[in-house]
């Protein structure tokens, strides 16, 4: 801080006492990075502080709010919430349940990907391996199967809850639309995953489903009455989906790519948008919005 004025006595070289190289190093560290020893001492606290930013165990109201503001995972949610929104019988936790099931599906799905090959001559035997020789393979597949079925139910009943409580009304229109798209995508996710075990159930179910998609031919056939050429919408859709006329290797590969790559990314993005829209449209619906 202060400018040192050098006295003549300082100019004369002082006799330095003999010091060991270790002491020399010590001095060098103190001279160039005096805080390093403190840093080592405070390492655990500083790591903790960098993660929680405030505190992991908030006590005051301010700290409780900060716990939400300062956490990446929690900042999606409001720091303060209406008591009404916490009543279990208002939402039955269905929206969050759908999210949790999606997370479980992602987790078990990634684990299953380590053991699965989307080839018609291997897929089924990989299923058998999961049951017999892969550690916890049966549990992984079981959890994936039940989470998938439960998610379809949870999303459907979540949609019913939102309707029966009038939660889709302005200003939440767009979030309802995103929700409907998420519902359809959940069904498509289930459908594309259904083929992957490559057993009789899977093969014939997808055959039936793809034939339903082929029914769009009715539209293009009807349009020929307007002088348009018959574009075979249904046949086109079916061929795009299956990569051929029947369910085979190409279909298995397409369903696999849709199921593990394309659809999860779209679904995840829409879930994020869904959450964002909840916050931006005033949080969860409340009876205060329409006094009766």
């Amino acid at each position: 801080m202060s400018v040192q004025t050098q006295k003549p006595s300082d100019l004369t070289p002082r006799q330095e006492p003999a010091i060991s190289p270790l002491q020399k190093l010590n001095r060098a560290i103190y001279r160039q990075a005096p805080e390093v020893f403190d840093s080592i001492k405070l390492l655990p606290y500083n790591v903790y502080k960098s993660i929680y930013r405030t505190t992991a165990f908030p006590k005051t109201e301010r700290e409780r709010s900060e716990a939400f503001f300062n956490s990446f995972l929690l900042h999606i949610q409001p720091a303060k919430i209406e008591k009404h929104a916490l009543r279990f019988t208002y939402t039955f936790g269905l929206g969050l349940l759908s999210t949790y099931l999606f997370l479980l599906l992602t987790l078990t799905g990634i684990l299953l990907m380590f053991f699965y090959v989307p080839a018609t001559d291997q897929a089924y035997f990989r299923m058998l391996d999961l049951r017999s020789s892969v550690s916890f393979g049966g549990i992984m597949r079981g959890m994936h199967f039940w989470s998938a079925n439960a998610m379809i139910g949870a999303v459907f009943f979540h949609m019913c809850r939102v309707f029966y409580t009038g939660a889709y009304k302005p200003p939440r229109e767009l979030n309802w639309v995103v929700g409907v798209i998420l519902f359809v995508l959940t069904l498509v996710m289930g459908f594309t995953g259904y083929l992957l075990p490559w057993d009789q159930l899977a093969f014939w179910a997808i055959t039936v489903g793809a034939n339903i998609a082929g029914k769009a031919d009715y539209i293009s056939t009807s349009l020929t009455g307007l002088g348009l050429p018959d574009l075979h919408f249904g046949l086109f859709t079916k061929n795009m989906l299956l990569g051929g006329d029947v369910v085979g290797q190409e279909a298995l590969l397409r369903f696999y790519v849709l199921h593990v790559a394309l659809l999860p990314v779209i679904l995840f993005s829409l879930i994020v948008w869904h959450f964002w829209l909840i916050r931006k449209t005033g949080g969860i619906s409340s009876p205060k919005e329409s006094p009766e």
Binding site: G190, D199, Q200, L201, W204
Partner: peptide, 27 residues
């Protein structure tokens, strides 16, 4: 997952269609 493991039928066989062939339950 532990007490009700998912079904796994015989390997897919395009020459042996079940009667009836059914889509996944949600369809």
């Amino acid at each position: 997952a532990l007490w009700a493991p998912p079904p796994l039928e015989k390997p897919a066989d395009p020459t042996k269609p079940p009667n009836p062939a059914k889509a996944p339950w949600y369809f």
